[in-house]
Amino acid sequence: MWGRGRGLAAPAPSPAGVHDTVETLAALFQYLISGLTNGAIYALIALGFGIIFNATHIINFAQGEFVMLGALMAISLYQAVPWLPAAFVGATLAVTLLGLVFERLALRPVRDRSPLTLIIITVGGAVLLKGLAMLWWGKEAYNLPPFSGAQPLHLGPATLLPQNLWVLGVAALLLAGLEAFFRLTLTGKAMRACAYNPVAARLVGIPAARMVQLSFALSAALGAAGGILIAPLTLGVYDMGTMLGLKGFSAAILGGLGSSLGGVLGGLLLGVAESLASGLISSGYRDAVAFFILLVVLFVRPQGLLGGKP
């Protein structure tokens, strides 16, 4: 490695050219891995937005904070009982419960259900949760050990950590499980019915309030799982949720709000675009790229890639 500088300066131009192409491809592959890992987390968050939106037509701006809470709770639990599966399950359950409490205390009592009011309430909820997390965990970052080893794996010309595979694998499992739940179980079908036509759903005896609660529980759980998966790569800190939440929402809109396939596609696309942009264009404008894509989608095709009419 130390000698690569000399290798590049080889006099014959053509081998260096081939070498360059290989290196460029390797770099592209590396960007892709990084982008897909982040994208998988965005996808989980985007789905969380979608589930709540379908059930209630609310956008929960506090979704990102569930991600942060998942990560930090798992870290705290792991410090108490150093067994990762327990920390994962425990933290996900705790955040799920919190999602239910949030719905009960912050959203159910609201009488004026205009988007403006609901946006402000959930933004307030996000700020509040972040502030409370800061008081509880302090302002420092914490480490969560990777699920299995930290030795990098070589995948062709690129390298990745076992944790990258964990993120992609568990995210895929969760997404598949969710899809199965919505398609195959009675409760899942009832939730979908509520999304299509709440009045009709109520007429046929589906408990709408219960479905709303379930949607908050599911999306909090998804967010928490995303936070725990990514924490070994990114560390856990009280203010990690805001940006993740916004990116997740951008992904949801990019794919089409309310469409689960769209959310996944949007998340992966956004992650890869960001990674390519910081690798190929300028790393300083990484976040700007994500939001620029969002603006373009909103202005040109607000229903997103796979969404119906908004």
């Binding site: 956008i59 988007p115 403006l116 946006i119 916004l246 929402f249 951008s250 809109i253 709000l257 300028s282 300083g284 404008y285 976040d287 700007a288 939001f291 620029f292 969002l294 603006l295 909103l298 202005f299 607000p302 908004p310």
Partner: peptide, 28 residues
């Protein structure tokens, strides 16, 4: 012109995205 064709959440997100981009510009 394009943003105000959007409503509710979409407008909120568009203005927020615009705010983030301008902020990043000030920094960069």
């Amino acid at each position: 012109i394009p943003a105000l064709k959007l409503r509710g959440y979409y407008l909120a997100m568009a203005t927020l995205g615009f705010g983030v981009i301008v902020y990043i510009f000030f920094v960069q």
